[in-house]
């Protein structure tokens, strides 16, 4: 089976500053791949190179089997993306947002109508279809944004800090949604800086200063660093003085 994502010495430089420095990894189909790192470690830049927003300076990468230099258009049809900032239109209603995003991915009207019903039922938001998104609580909005990002059934979905600022209960529900999709074969590429969330991932990579400092299952990483939790693993790796050793 072909891997969903491959990266080989992928690098992005902005002038003198190297944001992402020769990262290499593979993500299997249906895997939940956690992409961890402190703020400014290069997580967002890495995602942007994979989803076609940013052109790599050097190195190779494929997404869904397509090259990120040449086939961005083909990649775009096969991925979903939830950006770090909130990605729905606040001055549109729930229903209008669903129609818009469904529409720009070229879904037929009938499908959109069908999906909308199901999506609202799954979220328990049937009576909020005509509510403006800005009057929904943040947690609901994030769950809605995720549901909309995967409406066109992408092979891979990129989630850039999807749970920032969301309460623990909603985060839990959010991860349940992620698990459900992964079980159905969707590949999940997720960045976060909540270490408890890292435990939910199949494998985790930890970025420090543009490099991948560690990559394995949470269990193996904890053993390797003799730590009780991912939090300790992370601190161990990012602690000053430790990173250049």
């Amino acid at each position: 089976m072909l891997p969903a994502i491959t990266a080989d010495k992928l690098t992005k430089r902005f002038g003198d500053f190297t944001a992402v420095n020769q990262i290499s990894f593979e993500v299997k189909k249906g895997e939940i791949f956690g992409f961890l790192g402190a703020n400014g470690a290069g997580k967002t830049t890495a995602i942007r190179m994979l989803n076609g927003l940013s052109r790599p300076t050097s190195g190779q990468a494929t997404v869904a089997g397509f090259d990120v230099y040449r086939n961005t258009e083909k990649i775009k049809r096969r991925i979903g993306y939830m950006s770090q900032k909130f990605s729905l239109y606040e001055d549109l209603t729930v229903r209008e947002n669903i129609q818009f995003y469904g529409g720009i991915y070229g879904l037929p009207l009938k499908d959109i109508r069908h999906q909308m019903k199901q999506l609202l039922a799954n979220l328990g938001m049937e009576s909020y279809a005509r509510t403006l998104v800005k009057s929904l609580p943040l947690g609901w909005r994030q769950k809605l944004a995720f549901s909309i990002a995967i409406m066109h059934r992408p092979e891979i979905v990129f989630l850039d800090e999807p749970t920032g600022g969301v309460d623990p209960i909603t985060r839990r529900q959010f991860w349940e949604m992620i698990y459900k999709e992964a079980n159905e074969g969707m590949t999940i590429f997720v960045t976060t800086h909540y270490m408890d969330e890292a435990e939910y991932c199949g494998r985790v990579s930890i970025m420090v200063d543009g490099r991948i400092a560690a990559l394995d299952t949470p269990k193996a990483l904890k053993e390797q660093f003799h730590a009780d939790s991912m939090n300790d693993v992370f601190l161990n790796l990012t602690r000053p003085g430790r990173q250049h050793a």
Partner: peptide, 13 residues
């Protein structure tokens, strides 16, 4: 500013 432009650019539009 809102971040929706990124989502639009990642879409097939």
């Amino acid at each position: 500013e809102l971040g929706t432009m990124e989502v639009l650019l990642v879409s097939p539009l």
